[in-house]
Design a binder for these strands. Structure first.
Lengths: 342, 342
DNA sequence: TGCCCTTTCTAAAACATTTTAGGTCGAAAA
DNA sequence: TTTTCGACCTAAAATGTTTTAGAAAGGGCA
């Protein structure tokens, strides 16, 4: 049972496939096809269960009506939620989404982007782990419309939608400091060149400074993306024991927070009596934990929506526009018991 | 800057595009193209930054090397994890995944499948919310290879990979009963025709029966997928107050559990002293809650992996095979404090 | 009668590939 | 000298669309 094509319908009716194409695309009246003929075509298409081949159309039209979404990991709830928003928003424009996970590996990301381009996607939304300017510039050379989300390169002129990472980190660390915590451990994720991590680190740094507290490298630990669970225990042991004796911990993303909470539970420590906790990125269950976890909530809905809007604008503009949209969204600090002074 | 095609390379080198195509597909030696010519082609392709157009290739070859993944919601961690596994496994076969969320709406799912087919996907993995036989049969008529996951239709001969929902529910309810709980509230999700929900309900029912306890309809509540948060509070109020007075609650999926926990916290009830809790589907954070939540863990990794394996087997088999693979995986019961007798 | 205009439709090109069925040319064999 | 063979390469078709350019037929008008 082969698939039904325009030609099949045309042959069956003894007309040209041009006519069939025109009618099925609703241009029948416009080009003056006899009403009755139009009806016959529609009826026959129906009867033969015709489905247009969008691949062929895409080839002819040079547009696939598909966008690519490159993220570190679809299994991370932050990105899963964004993926959902992107899917819904793109749908409004008649676009499908192909999403791929880079695992924070630049080489993998490059090859994924390559594959997406070969598949003739019309645009890209990227939470990129690329190191920098060069690689992003090569995208610009491809003249493919794209929007960066979550992570951006201030030095390169691109569209982006990000959250104010520095401000979020600053506020939550400032909060800890006001509660009287002094020794605040910082847990970073390891490809640490990515902007949000750098900026959150910066916010931490600035908050300390604003309170006149010395920045201490010994309080900062870096955990590799691929082996969070394995490394976290050792990192926390070092942070929480002598000589460091951290009183509070700031986890820079939700993966770290979850892993950290596991270890803290294993150590049998009480939050916040033994150690206070704050997290960048809020998860639905954080407010149900005991105690609830203070977190910087990110506006994922807006991030996804804006990214799609900008991308569609650029795709629909026939020329590749020079001006780029750059959006920085405010985070929301959700103070909960995990960071209270006991 | 237009995209570079085979013809461009051919023209540049003064050879035919046939030759270029053969060389770039690694068939140069096989068909006896001069080594030196081969090198010139490869070098020129490199120089011109040639990227094959997979859409054109797909059109010619009648295969898109893309599969569709239809799930209720990519933002649900259970499905997000499956999506990740499917992505990784499909990649091993050189396939990309297009995933779409149906929101448990059959009409939406039908239209999504339609669109995926128009895009010439080579196969489908479905966690379907379709009502039944008819609609699935129409897929079979399309002769498109597909595998059902999570949800299946025992009466229809299809590939599927599911978990033993009845057994999982039976065991966890049996556990509650052994702890001495008698009045066990059941929270179902609302398009309740889908098999896992029916079978989990069945398991609940069977466990009660095995303990000689009367099944009481008043203990069963149905929550619509689209408005879980809104409806949960009222449902729990009815279950936990007189005259029902449920002593324990069994949530049939993770969305329900999370929503339920929110309400229980709001009511200020203690777990398990005031109400014991068990969940079908385990989330990473359940073991960190206070108290940790007893849950039926699903083998999502195997589910994704097997689904892809079966699908690839069917795609690669030239004929549409008659025999179907049907896999039922065992769940794992994780007993935690939320279901202890206090 | 010849011309032009409408109405209704179509042939062919184009998109970028892969594949089929050859073609050319020089050298070796007969 | 002709044939054959091998090495190397190519023209054209095919995939399923959309679009461009124009054709056929019939009627009105000078």
């Amino acid at each position: 049972m082969k698939k039904v094509s325009l030609s099949d319908i045309a042959r069956e009716l003894g007309v040209s496939k041009t006519l069939v194409s025109l009618v099925l695309n609703g241009r029948g009246d416009e080009v003056g096809i006899n009403k009755e003929t139009q009806q016959r075509v529609v009826a026959m298409a129906e009867k033969m269960n015709y489905k247009p081949n969008l691949v062929a159309r895409g080839l002819r039209l040079g547009a696939s009506k598909t966008i690519g979404l490159v993220i570190p990991n679809i299994a991370n709830p932050f990105f899963a939620r964004i993926a959902r928003v992107v899917e819904d928003e793109a749908d409004k424009y008649g676009f499908r989404v192909m999403s791929v996970s880079s695992d924070e590996k630049p080489e993998k990301e490059i090859s994924l982007i390559q594959v997406l381009l070969e598949r003739q996607i019309d645009g890209l939304i990227l939470a990129t782990c690329l190191k920098g300017k060069e690689e992003i510039r090569s995208l610009k050379n491809d003249k493919i419309p794209f929007v960066l989300i979550d992570r951006h390169f201030p030095q390169v002129k691109t569209n982006y939608v990000v959250v104010d990472n520095r401000a979020g980190a600053f506020q939550v660390v400032d909060h800890l400091l006001r509660q009287g915590y002094r020794k605040i451990g910082l847990l970073k994720i390891s490809p640490s060149h990515i902007t949000p991590i750098r900026l959150r680190h910066q916010g931490y740094h600035d908050a300390l400074k604003a309170h006149g507290i010395r920045y201490d490298k010994k309080l900062v630990k870096e955990i590799p993306f691929g082996s969070i669970d394995e490394v976290m225990e050792e990192a926390l042991r070092e942070l929480l024991q002598r000589p460091v004796n951290a009183e509070a911990l700031f986890f820079l993303n939700n993966d770290l927070t979850v892993a950290g909470l596991n270890v803290i539970k294993k150590f049998g420590l009480r939050i916040p009596q033994d150690v206070a906790i704050v997290s960048f990125d809020d998860l639905q269950l954080f407010r149900l934990l005991y105690p609830p976890i203070t977190a910087v909530a990110q506006p994922w809905r807006e991030m996804g929506r804006e990214a799609v809007r900008i991308l569609m604008k650029e795709i629909e503009a026939s020329r590749y526009p020079e001006e780029k949209e750059q959006i920085v969204l405010p985070p929301e600090i959700r103070i909960r018991k995990s960071s209270e002074r006991f």
